[in-house]
Computed example of a mutant assay.
Amino acid sequence: MAGKREAKRDALKSALIAATRSLIAEGGLKGLRARDIAAKTGCALGSLYTIFDDIDTLILHVNFQTLQAIEAEMDTALAGVADDRAFEALGLAYLRFVAANRNLWAALFEHHMPEGATVPVWLDEEVAALMAKIDAPLARLMPEASPEEVTDRARTFFGAVHGVIAISVENRFVGVPMETLEREIVALTGILTHGQAQGPRMVS
């Protein structure tokens, strides 16, 4: 009997996450309401709160799935790619994911936990797993660097590519036109790779 209750609970949890993901994909975070999630799932509003403490926790589960999807895209992009082309492959994979999943991607950066709340360990671990896709080829280009230095450089590389994509897809005044953005990501990642291979100037 307990097993059936647990299975029913797990099924409702999955359905609520799927409904929330669908609503975010359709309309973004703005205006996302618990009653709409419950209605889309076909359950009572109170049932939602028997599974999740609040809507923020539900959004975190959606963001976790989005990070997993980005990681999967990166894995596919890196298959059989040499280190000197890895950042190009990763940059283009990230761009294509953003273009195809703009609202889900935006939710990663738009959602903020309530004051005093902490991000769960399982989400931090998924972020680390995604960043490890950049760390691995970068570490081979930085054989004398410490793991901490590689991690810092990986975050810098990601920030550079993410920044160009973000201001462009959000149509900011200094953004690159969408029709040339892929070309510019190739150029940017090439510059980063070449610069790293040459050995960047160290700042004391």
Rank of each mutant, 00 (worst) to 15 (best):
E88A: 01
L141D: 12
F64A: 08
D84G: 03
L130T: 00
R140N: 03
L104P: 02
A145T: 08
L141H: 04
A129S: 15
L108C: 11
A129R: 15
G116P: 10
L141W: 09
P143V: 02
H112E: 11
A100H: 05
A129N: 14
A117L: 07
A72N: 09
L108E: 10
A77P: 10
G116S: 12
N103M: 07
D135E: 15
D124Y: 13
W105A: 00
A106K: 14
V62H: 01
L95R: 01
F87H: 03
A100R: 10
E125V: 09
T118P: 11
W105P: 00
N63K: 07
R96A: 08
F97M: 02
P120A: 08
P114Q: 08
L123G: 06
A128R: 10
A93K: 05
V127N: 04
G116H: 13
L141Y: 11
P120Y: 03
N101S: 11
N101L: 07
F87Y: 03
K133N: 10
F97V: 08
V98T: 12
A106T: 13
L104D: 00
W122C: 03
A72F: 07
L67T: 15
A145R: 11
F109C: 01
A86C: 02
M113R: 13
Q65H: 06
F87P: 01
